[in-house]
Design a protein around this nucleic acid. Structure first.
Lengths: 232, 232
DNA sequence: ATTGTCATGTCACACAATTGTCATATATTA
DNA sequence: TAATATATGACAATTGTGTGACATGACAAT
């Protein structure tokens, strides 16, 4: 099943509903993580980097809509699609939900089949924007689906971390990132590694890119690194 | 890293644990204050206004979670992030902790590294950096995001300190600053550097700006320097 | 189990850029 | 012209990065 890598975060205060959804999604080949509150959810988004969020409208404490707004404002996660779950009676509010940054909404009660269908639809809509399409710069191509990198049509042998690092850089060009930011974005928020480790992976990446393309990975002294086509 | 200045309040009834944590944090450049009870902690929060609170779940008297709730309800300190410290066996309660307003939690025992990492992560989350727009004057552009300076579309090679200096000037134009003020603003308040050093960096900055743009950095004799578009 | 291969994170050292300071030159003011 | 303030070049100490090597742990094949 090709959806199996996708991690879905389910946010709802009702454990029974969460589980129901989780079971349905897992049968469809998704991976699920759950949260009961907005705070909890936020922590999980940062730590686990889910590919999609199912968000209940009504939550104790910070409401779902507020959380959605916050996530969409946050540089770190504004590209994670959100589906709002609303009760029938709240349907009027759907406009608000979409305004807050939700990519779709489903009114409760819903069938598992409907949920999965909409979820896939949203994923289809939102992923091609960068996760699926090959990215090309100069003569360097990164193909996210095939998980391959080539320089002038020649395959490069690249490790997983270097791949993610390069992918991040190629989707965030022309911008300086600190080592900490790179750790957050590429490694994820829940790993604790030395900042200097970034240097090592930068070096490995440069090495595999070779002399023709390592100019793309630029050192910004005192700050971090930058991916840029323009020479330093 | 400029984590210094951040004040962390450690609340735990075990002095040995408090000290252990304090040592770890101080090595990471944080400033620590300690409290053994919820009561003391509350007083310190009010008096010292820490930027962050490490709060043990189990406390004699008012429990940690109760304190968290109280703080989060309080207008004065509901924006101070809280990290809960819980024993492994209490892990189930983490949801409760997050509900009470904690921003993260760590289960004991934890490594100093993990603690520091999570702490920094929470601080990063709660102090979002403002979006910085490129600044342009005449034909000179400084882009904080890309960390680049260009004169008429030509990249300039500029050192870190000169970059900060120029950034400060461009965001504070048409005003004379004394060397001391520049040291405070650009170098940071707590560094001991000769005043004359400013002159040297001014010269370096002028040099990299070149003859077309060095007129922007003007000497104000007897006072200091000024960034101004108007010719002297 | 055992071995072998990766991928990863960390360290120590090599190397390079930046920084602060000084001595000296030049400019400005009274 | 003397007195004061700023500009400039040189240099050594400091700081930040690059790089190779190593230990560890995951995993697959044996």
């Amino acid at each position: 099943m090709k959806q199996q890598g996708k991690k879905i975060l389910i946010v709802d205060d009702e454990p029974s509903i969460r589980d129901m959804i989780a079971v349905a999604l897992e049968m469809a080949g998704f991976q699920c993580i759950e949260a009961a509150t907005a705070k909890d959810a936020y922590a999980l988004v940062v730590d686990e980097k889910p590919q999609m969020i199912l968000l209940d409208w009504m939550l104790p404490g910070t409401s779902g809509i507020e959380l959605a707004r916050r996530l969409k404002r946050d540089e770190l996660c504004n590209d994670v699609p959100i589906i709002m779950l609303t009760a029938k009676s709240e349907e009027d509010n759907k406009i608000l939900g979409l305004e807050a940054g939700a990519d779709d909404y489903i009114t409760k009660p819903f069938s598992p089949r409907e949920l999965v269908a909409r979820l896939k639809a949203v994923l289809r809509r939102t992923t091609p924007q960068g996760i699926e399409e090959p990215i090309q710069v100069d003569g360097l191509t990164l193909d996210p689906i095939r998980h391959r990198v080539s320089a002038n049509d020649e395959q490069l042998d690249i490790g997983p971390t270097e791949f993610r690092l390069l992918q991040f850089f190629m989707t965030h060009q022309e911008r300086a990132y600190s080592r900490t930011q790179l750790l957050d974005q590429v490694w994820g928020g829940n790993v604790y590694v030395e900042e200097r480790t970034v240097d090592v992976h930068i070096r490995r990446l440069r090495k595999t890119l070779g002399v023709n393309f390592d100019y793309l990975i630029q050192t910004v002294r005192g700050t971090g690194y930058r991916f840029s086509q323009k020479p330093k």
